[in-house]
């Protein structure tokens, strides 16, 4: 298949992959793989919001909740059945089902954008309060005690498939996180290049017009919401394995707000932007954790305001120079899968 047939696939697709691989390979020279794994997990979480907010116009405060549901469901399943890799699959499927039900209720209920943000926020807070109140012995699912605010420690983490005792080292876990992040990025790009992705962008632009054209907007938004939930669940599973414990703090308002800040600072309407935002801001936060002079949140707030003022389209948007589009354009009598402007944009991605 030639480059022409693939619409510049070679250039647009493989350059970011190669650059990303180089970054992933050399990053351990500058930071511990333990820290870098967390950055990858948060980048995946940021992508999950970037997909539905940046491309679907769905501002969701519930990413922290889906992150937490993914982590908790992985832990509960792995404690009960002792199958870490099967538990990963279970956690993702369970979270996708949960987000589908939740999303369908909101979108088929014709909830407006602002109300959707409020409902997802409240959903997150309810789960946070509920899990904080599960310290008693009656809150037990199979062998897994929910543990209230102490959370659930001591569960089977990911291992090499050939031996239960062969746990993943920090380096191997880091590589796993990198691979999953890259696969997720490719998956999201594939979605956005598809008919589904284009309709999603159209919905972001004008929901009523898309509906009057004949698309079931509610179905598209529910599907996007479910995909986003699945990505957040994957991030939750990786986080559980990274931390070795899950607590109700996963459902905290702080984390949900942070995901939104990462996305805004990194750049809405791109996939790469939220990843950059999460990496930069998490690195800053971790750096600030070593000092007690100023409050972390104060600095993060100042950074957010500064970033919005200096880079209103986010870090990624500031370097693209042109409008964001996932559409192709028609050149030389044939529709290309990627137009020049999109190629430039995606090269940045």
């Amino acid at each position: 298949m030639t480059s022409q047939q693939t619409g510049g696939f070679t250039h647009v697709f493989f350059v970011p992959i190669v650059c990303g691989t180089l970054v992933f390979l050399f990053a351990p020279v500058f930071a511990s793989t333990y820290t870098l794994s967390l950055l990858c997990v948060y980048a995946l979480l940021a992508i999950s919001l970037g997909l539905i907010w940046g491309f679907g116009g769905i501002l969701c405060f519930g990413q922290g909740a889906f992150f937490g549901i993914g982590a908790y469901s992985y832990v509960i399943f792995s404690i009960n059945f002792g199958l870490p890799w099967t538990s990963v699959l279970f956690a993702i499927v369970f979270t996708v089902l949960a987000t589908t039900c939740f999303g369908a209720a909101m979108f088929y209920g014709r909830l407006g954008d602002v109300y959707l943000a409020v409902v997802t926020l409240v959903f997150t807070l309810i789960l946070n309060r509920f899990l904080n109140s599960t310290a008693g012995p009656e809150y037990q699912i199979g062998s897994a005690r929910l543990g209230g605010f102490n959370g659930i420690p001591g569960f089977p983490t990911l291992n090499f498939p050939w031996s239960d005792a062969a746990f993943l080292s920090d380096m191997v876990f880091y590589i796993l996180c990198c691979v999953i992040l890259v696969i997720s990025w490719v998956f999201c790009r594939w979605i956005l290049r598809s008919h589904f992705g284009r309709v999603l962008v159209a919905i972001r632009e004008n929901e009523e017009r898309v509906e009057l054209t004949g698309y079931d907007v509610r179905l598209y938004k529910t599907a996007a919401f479910s995909i986003s939930g699945g990505l957040a669940a994957m991030a939750g599973v990786l986080y559980a394995n990274w931390a070795g414990i899950v607590t109700p703090n996963l459902f905290s308002l702080t984390l949900s707000a942070e995901i939104i800040i990462w996305t805004v600072v990194g750049g809405l309407g791109t996939l790469f932007g939220p990843m950059i935002g999460s990496a930069v801001l998490t690195a800053v936060k971790l750096g600030l954790g070593h000092q007690t002079l100023v409050d972390n949140f104060f600095v993060m707030g100042i950074l957010l305001i500064a970033a919005v003022l200096v880079f209103p389209r986010g870090i990624a948007g500031a370097f693209s120079g042109r409008r964001v589009s996932v559409f192709g354009s028609k050149k030389k009598g044939k529709w290309q899968t990627r137009s020049n402007r999109t190629q430039e944009k995606l090269s940045n991605d």
């Binding site: 632009e205 009057l212 054209t213």
Partner: peptide
């Protein structure tokens, strides 16, 4: 509709493509 109701952030051909691709 009465008031032009379009996909404002997209180009003309993108607007038409979305509509045409529906069916």
């Amino acid at each position: 509709m009465q008031v032009p109701n379009l996909l404002e952030g997209l180009s003309v051909e993108e607007n038409l493509w979305i509509a045409a691709r529906c069916r």
